[in-house]
Design a protein around this nucleic acid. Structure first.
Length: 425
RNA sequence: GGAGAGAUGGCCGAGUUGGCUGAAGGCGCUCCCCUGCUAAGGGAGUAUGGGGUUUAUAGCUCCAUCGAGGGUUCGAAUCCCUCUCUCUCCGCCA
């Protein structure tokens, strides 16, 4: 949610900024509603003030044993008028809220203009793409040949876009999460945290998935309005919802491993083969809650922490600065980490590191107390995958495949896996 | 799942025959005074969000908030309804 000031004093500038990302702000409707909100709110509050003072007068008169009937007559007409004004104000306010809640964040000045992913800006690359003196297989063929990756059984159990892993591949998958959690908690200063995988609607509104993107979520059929989490970002960021954090506890840095559930509505034709796009996948998420002045550097830092995982695994990757047309709804800037996928001869997203500024914090009412002013100030939130575990598994299988179909495991994982090579079972 | 009790400011804790109570008192915290040091003492301040005015995140002023939402009333922390959560006991259970 943007600062309401953007819609009052700076509506033209805001419209222009949002146009950069292809969002058309209905500034006329907003301005009109604002005008009406203002006059009705003033009227409502005046009436409330009048009622309050008269009611106090009645109380006093009664205490002194005076006849209060004339006073009562005086106030009787007030009630209906006030009620009407309150209802009207609420109607305008909720109409305004509905519009404002669906307005995306304003892109940072450093975000390149563009329409879609083709306009994203490559910032840097790392590592050497592997070369093969044999025909490379993709992870689906590799996994099936190893007898350890089984999509058909997953279809039977549930349906498409799920996977069954066995033996060494399953253990590698577990080892990856352990490695990532250890790296971030032991070396990068994040607090490991465990959170619910089922969240309420308030939490999803706080981080921006609702009200606009409900169709991407799995909603539970229960008496409560519950959803499966699409990312750990939701429960972890909501830790600070409705709180005022003492300065000594800033910044907050969390690392959290969770499964993620996405309905993938609207992406039916995309990545239907293999583990790239699943309804259920594991992710290790990094979340930072920082002061406004620190958010830019924290965003760079968090991105570097995610990159470190790829470096230690020896996977070639690149960092791209998403263009205005490709950044997410709540973000003001996003770096995607894209890992080299040999079978596709291209880089594929494996992490998305975003700075949300105060956009989420305003929805979350997440603040910290500035001792200089004594006043609460909105925090800035930053998060990124560190990394998507399923896609990391894909990258390892494909990049470190050998001619005989075995997989060489990166050194850093040996102590987590207990083996150095995956061989057919 | 059954029975009962409860939810008030940073914390503890008054307030339930509705009326200067946005909220006593205490603790904590901040500032000031006093004080050879220490200890003690005296005074002042100490919620959040929003609106109007304003160059202003200054000041002034108004509104809302006593778990959440709704209702009764001139007036609700106090009365009524719904929901949520917490605690105790019983049952069940990883």
């Amino acid at each position: 949610m943007l600062d309401p000031k953007h819609f009052r004093q700076e509506i033209d500038e805001t419209t222009k900024q949002l146009a950069r990302r292809g969002f058309e702000l209905d500034s006329n409707t907003i301005s009109e509603l604002e005008e009406r909100r203002k006059s009705v709110q003033v009227k409502t509050q005046d009436l409330q003030a009048e009622r309050n003072s008269k009611s106090k007068g009645i109380g006093k008169a009664k205490a002194q044993g005076q006849d209060i009937q004339p006073l009562l007559d005086e106030v009787s007409s007030l009630g209906d008028e006030l009620k009407a004004a309150e209802v009207e104000l609420q109607r305008i306010q909720s109409e305004l809220d509905a519009i404002i809640m669906s307005v995306p964040n304003i892109p940072d000045a450093s975000v390149p203009d563009g329409k879609d992913e083709n306009d994203n800006l490559e910032i840097r690359t790392w590592g050497k793409k592997p070369t093969f003196d044999f025909e490379v297989k993709d992870h689906v063929d590799l996994g099936e040949q190893l007898g350890q990756l089984d999509f058909e059984t997953a279809v039977k159990i549930t349906g498409s876009r799920f996977a069954v892993m066995n033996s060494q591949v399953a253990r590698l998958h577990r080892a990856l999460t352990q490695f990532m959690l250890d790296l971030h908690s032991q070396e990068h200063g994040y607090t490991e945290t465990y959170v619910p995988y089922v969240v309420n609607a308030d939490s999803l509104r706080g981080t921006g998935q609702l009200p606009k993107f409900e169709e991407d979520l799995f909603k539970l059929r229960s008496e409560h309005e519950f959803y499966l989490i699409p990312t750990a970002e939701v429960p972890v960021t909501n830790i600070v919802r409705d709180t005022i954090i003492d300065e000594e506890y800033m910044p907050r840095k969390y690392v959290c491993h969770t499964p993620c559930f996405r309905s993938e509505a609207g992406s039916y034709g995309k990545d239907t083969r293999g583990m790239i796009r699943q309804h259920q996948f594991e992710k290790v998420e990094l979340v930072q809650v920082v002061k406004a002045e620190d958010s830019e550097s924290a965003h760079e830092e968090l991105t570097a922490h995610a990159e470190e995982v790829l470096k230690r695994l020896g996977l070639a990757y690149r960092v791209v600065n998403l263009c205005t047309g490709d950044i997410g709804f709540s973000a003001n800037k996003t770096y995607d980490l894209e890992v080299w996928i040999p079978s596709q001869n291209t880089y594929r997203e494996i992490s998305s590191c975003s700075n949300f500024g105060d956009f989420q914090a305003r929805r979350l009412k997440a603040r910290w107390r500035n001792p200089e002013t004594g006043k609460p100030e909105l925090v800035h939130t930053i998060n990124g995958s560190g990394l998507a575990v399923g896609r990391t598994l894909v990258a390892i299988l494909e990049n470190f495949q050998n001619k005989d179909g075995s997989i060489t495991i990166p050194d850093v994982l040996h102590r987590y896996c207990g083996f150095e090579v995956i061989s057919p079972t």
